[in-house]
């Protein structure tokens, strides 16, 4: 049962019900180190709920989530983050009243306690790290711009950048290219392929063309259960998946 695994993330029999409605039911999911996993599925399949449970936003009613052999279920959200899980939300969640620089600065994983934050100083190391990340997310020129003035796509990148500041071992992105233009998608795919080195990534995405460019393994969720799992090739030819999702 508790055999030591090589999986970074190890989800067994996970389930949650809201007022009797089983949004996720008996889900098993294993993510390896350095793997890029994409979760697809029709609306209401429970994709976002799974991420919510991993990062502690929603408490599961059954099952276990083990990350680096530590149980995440029951841990507070900020502790889960500190153990190495980063989460990007579906709608870009950045601080509109802070500049891009400050957005990245407050995401730097030091001075996270109240008194730590009082003593925190923006050392040259921090500044260097901010510039490094800003370069990666194509926002080097926009460091002094307030978050509110960024375009939708830039906000998405900034949120990814804020996660990168924390150097998470597991990065979870909920529809990172939603609402992006074609060139922006292009750049995002390039960005993901660059930042995936040394960490595992779970992505929820609808855009199949985008998925095929980044995914190692694809998991198809349907009605809170796993319908199929495999490479993009296998998924695209799976009759069940074509029936409920890809079809038409």
């Amino acid at each position: 049962m508790n055999a030591k695994t090589d999986f970074l993330l190890y989800i067994e029999d996970l389930g949650v019900s809201f007022d009797g409605f089983k949004a996720v039911d008996g889900l098993n999911l294993y993510v390896e180190r350095n793997e890029l996993r994409v979760i697809i599925g029709p609306n209401g399949a429970g994709k976002t709920t799974v991420l919510d449970m991993i990062c502690g936003k929603t408490q599961p009613t059954q099952g276990s989530i083990r990350f680096k052999d530590r149980e995440l279920v029951g841990m507070a959200e900020h502790q889960i983050v500190r153990s190495g899980v980063g989460r990007k939300f579906q709608t870009p969640s950045i601080y509109e009243n802070l500049t891009v620089f400050e957005n990245l600065e407050v995401s730097y994983p030091k001075g996270r306690s109240v008194f730590g934050s009082l003593a925190f100083r923006t050392t040259p190391e921090v500044v260097e790290r901010i510039h490094q990340v800003a370069e990666q997310i194509f926002l080097k020129e926009a460091l002094d711009l307030e978050g509110a003035f960024l375009s939708h796509g830039q906000k998405q990148w900034l949120e990814i950048g804020m996660l990168l500041m924390q150097e998470p071992e597991l990065l979870m992105l909920d529809e990172p290219v939603a609402g992006m233009s074609a060139p922006e998608r292009e750049k995002t795919a390039e960005l993901l392929n660059r930042i995936r080195k040394g960490r595992s990534i779970i992505i929820i995405e609808h855009d199949m063309e985008f998925v095929s460019r980044i995914a190692d393994t694809v998991t198809v969720l349907h009605l809170g259960k796993i319908l199929a799992e495999g490479s993009m090739q296998e998924i695209q030819h799976n009759p069940n998946v074509i029936e409920v999702y890809l079809g038409h």
Partner: peptide, 12 residues
Amino acid sequence: DREDRVRFSGYD
């Protein structure tokens, strides 16, 4: 601005 974002950036 975004309480959830702060929480999921590792702050209590």
